[in-house]
Design a protein around this nucleic acid. Sequence first.
DNA 1: CGACTCCTTGACAGCGTTCAACAGTAGTGG
DNA 2: CCACTACTGTTGAACGCTGTCAAGGAGTCG
Lengths: 219, 219
Amino acid sequence: MLVRMHKDARERPSSRELDALAGESVFCSEFKYRPGTEIFGEAEPVEYIYQVIDGAVRSYKLLSDGRRQINAFHLPGDIFGVENGNVHRFTAEAIIETTTRLARRQRIFGGRAPATNNVLKLITRNLQHAESHMLLLGRKTSLEKVAAFLVEMDRRLTAAGVMILPMNRRDIADYLGLTLETVSRALSLLKDQWTLTFLGQTQRQIELLDRRKLAELDS
Amino acid sequence: MLVRMHKDARERPSSRELDALAGESVFCSEFKYRPGTEIFGEAEPVEYIYQVIDGAVRSYKLLSDGRRQINAFHLPGDIFGVENGNVHRFTAEAIIETTTRLARRQRIFGGRAPATNNVLKLITRNLQHAESHMLLLGRKTSLEKVAAFLVEMDRRLTAAGVMILPMNRRDIADYLGLTLETVSRALSLLKDQWTLTFLGQTQRQIELLDRRKLAELDS
DNA sequence: CGACTCCTTGACAGCGTTCAACAGTAGTGG
DNA sequence: CCACTACTGTTGAACGCTGTCAAGGAGTCG
């Protein structure tokens, strides 16, 4: 037996919390997974909410070439797989022999006061952004990071074909987990490759010339 | 004027969304911030929810020595400062001259169905973890990352003074944005410094000998 | 025993950081 | 208008942390 309990005196994770979460729908059952087994996959529809009874689970995102970023480990007592949308945003796998209790996700979202729903959506959007940003910070190269930044800003900021950045190189660097020099070098490289150009005298106005190349750098 | 609108045809961010969010309490007002001004600081009590009308905002966390990780940029239309707890988990600053609309946070949380509240708490906990993990991934050294990992697992996993890791070195590495070799080297270093010891033959059972040193490595 | 997985350790390379110099821009005040 | 200064961004050179590649030990299981 490799798995142990929480330090904080919780004898055994009760299903109470899970019941509370699932609301009215207290259809609960247990399920056991062998080491390395997938519990649910990225982009799969959300059917259940899970609570670890015994064992350990990793949830992660992948880049196309196999680089992996584990978002979190789920240990006994933890609830995971709670999503706002209809599909999972990452993959969950049992690390060792793991027992989970699961409850049907009977539309946790919707059917509530609109204000609450909006708060949920908003926080979920933040969480979603954080999750993909962890993948960026942990597993992407400097060039990929800068490309991802440009793609994001292009989506959010571009008007009339021009992107005018409000932030300086240091801000970008601190967003991407780099130094400002590295950001500057990456931008110069992309400029030399005709992937973008600077407009005006300051280097804050950027026109993207090759969005396809940026998108594939972004992976 | 440096700030521009969203690409997607939103003429001007309406206050509707913010109203909906704030619920009944639609006390709304506008506020203007000069470049570099703090909008709210980490650990400050949450009083308002903000929506960017015009300008740009950075929200970030700091390490004690000044290393900074920017979680997100908030651009016109974005709502930010929505928190579950009573204090902000990061600092928000205007990057350029910024106008925000703000609404009093009249206890968005609480006063709802308990199930909803539990979902909120759960997602918020995930978000909180993701936020601190971004700081780790973006700005910590390999030794600091491994120390942080040990501190986290010590809290969540240790029973009877011993920590039995369910995951292998590769999992740890993919969690921390490192390679398994680097994780192994960091653990060996901590072992040589008598900060921890391995128990048993496998290197999965760890006893922490100097939690103070680990905590200060964790910053 | 042999095959496999997991982990450690060494040697070396390389990516990104650090340190430094310099140029362009903006703001200020004479 | 021109210093003067502060800030921002680029670029070069050298360093060093972490990754890569490789070898080998230890545990496990059939």
